[in-house]
């Protein structure tokens, strides 16, 4: 569904993504893992064009996207993103956060949008918080609202940029559960995460990145049990020791 060929990106002199090739199929759950600075977040953000690639191809649904001429906003309607720091709109209630984009971008009428929003809130187990402002929510609750907000646009693919890294440990579980449910429903997901347990359990495929390159890209089972690359083995060793 999304294919990336020979993607390169630099920030000034720093070459952050080096010749990345990656394919994400429909209903795939792909986890990007690696240490900080490996470029995984940057790669994720290239997928919805929040970062501009320097060269390479990004092909969505068989059509190559030309960032200069194509309507990126339209593309972003179909690619949902969940941020490490939630980025909820603080001046709007939970409900208003969720109905904002469908109403303003897709022109959905208010009643319909509210109905859908309430359904989504039910799905993430937060229906009673509809009229609350984000400042009153816990981190885990905020992230679940963020997921509902992204889902409100009915995207084909969901991107998660370290969704649990900013959460207190006891709140991580509720978010991962929500994400797992989403995966089981067949949503195509690309997740940048440090949560190895989640990756092992939910991901179909893992891409391990280091220093701007994808070192190893395999199915979850292969990756954790029979890693091919030396560096991968070192990485796994280091994380498992925790």
């Amino acid at each position: 569904m999304i294919r990336i060929n020979h993607l390169n990106k630099s920030f000034g002199d720093l070459h952050v993504l080096k010749n990345i090739d990656l394919t994400v199929y429909e209903s795939d759950v792909v986890c990007l893992i690696g240490s900080s600075g490996s470029g995984k977040s940057t790669l994720l953000r290239c997928l919805n064009f929040l970062e501009k690639k320097d060269n390479g191809n990004i092909i969505i649904e068989g059509i190559e996207v030309n960032p200069r001429t194509d309507n990126l906003n339209k593309i972003r309607e179909k690619v949902g993103m969940v941020f490490q720091n939630f980025n909820l709109f603080p001046h709007k209630t939970v409900l208003e956060n969720i109905i904002e984009a469908p109403m303003m971008v897709k022109g959905v009428d208010k009643e319909k949008a509210i109905f859908k929003a309430k359904q989504l809130l039910q799905k993430v187990d937060l229906e009673d918080k509809a009229d609350v402002y984000p400042s009153k929510l816990s981190g885990g609750q905020k992230q679940r609202v963020a997921i509902a907000r992204a889902l409100a646009m009915e995207p084909d693919i969901m991107l998660f940029d370290e969704p649990t890294s900013a959460l207190d440990p006891e709140l991580v579980g509720e978010v991962l559960t929500t994400m797992k449910d989403l995966a089981e429903e067949g949503m195509t997901m690309v997740v940048v995460t440090h949560e190895m347990g989640f990756a092992k359990e939910v991901a179909d495929r893992i891409a391990y990145m280091h220093d701007g390159k994808i070192i190893e890209h395999a199915t979850s089972e292969q990756f954790f049990n029979h890693p091919k690359e030396e560096r991968t083995r070192e990485f796994l060793k280091a994380t498992m020791l925790k």
Binding site: N48, R76, E77, N87, M153
Partner: peptide
């Protein structure tokens, strides 16, 4: 905030 808006297609 800007990134969230844009990622929603705004």
């Amino acid at each position: 905030q800007l990134e969230a808006g844009r990622s929603l297609g705004m």
